[in-house]
């Protein structure tokens, strides 16, 4: 008398490699306190709640959750989890489903300056997320088929490793972590007079 039940959101997550063992979570919160993101970056970040949402079939809430997009798969929580759940695997599985459903990341991901990129491939090598590929595409002022680096925004976690390794400063993070912003910040302080410290 086994009923063929329709596939739930949790089943979809489980079906993706890494998404198994989702139901083992008993909400102890170890992962949340081990993770740096809520401390440092986004107070809304909470993998425990996201796993709960997945278990309860709250699909839209899960896709809209910032947690879905912020996990960088450092796996600090994996070694701490008493239920041995590969949490980043579950989160990435949810992200995979969200991408399939048409959601995109809100992170300020790396951008390529296609005018100066020489397609040396250094960034492809260093990227920990395999988000960068070399593609052939038309670039204005350069030609119809120019090989340049291309960043998959859904994979990029905005760590900036590519920006640090690029020899021509053709790939970088936008806004406050761009080369210009960091160096300007540095020089502003350099120009200021040193305050004497009385000892």
């Amino acid at each position: 008398m086994s009923h063929e039940s329709s596939e739930t959101f949790a089943d979809q997550v489980r079906a993706i490699p890494g998404g198994e063992h989702l139901e083992m979570c008993y909400s102890c919160g170890t992962c949340v306190s081990k993770c740096m993101i809520q401390h440092k970056f986004e107070p809304e970040y909470n993998p425990r709640r996201l796993i709960r949402k997945a278990m309860m079939g709250m699909k839209q809430e899960a896709f809209g959750d910032k947690t879905t997009w912020l996990c960088s798969a450092c796996d600090l929580c994996y070694s701490a989890c008493p239920q041995e759940i590969h949490i980043s695997g579950v989160l990435l599985a949810i992200r995979e489903l969200a991408i399939q459903a048409g959601y995109t990341t809100f992170l300020k991901t790396a951008v390529v300056d296609e005018l100066t990129c020489v397609a040396c491939g250094l960034c492809v090598e260093v990227c920990p997320y395999e988000a960068i590929t070399l593609v052939e595409k038309p670039v204005m002022f350069r030609g119809k088929a120019v090989t340049v680096a291309h960043v998959d925004p859904n994979r990029c976690m905005a760590c900036g490793l590519c920006a640090a390794s690029c020899r021509s400063a053709s790939i970088g993070l936008p806004d406050e972590f761009s080369n210009e912003a960091v160096i300007e910040n540095l020089w502003e302080w350099m120009r200021s007079p040193v305050v004497e410290v009385t000892e």
Partner: peptide, 12 residues
């Protein structure tokens, strides 16, 4: 002691 306060959803 670093822990999540599950009721608050905040790391303490």
């Amino acid at each position: 002691v670093h822990s999540e306060d599950v009721a608050l959803g905040r790391v303490t």
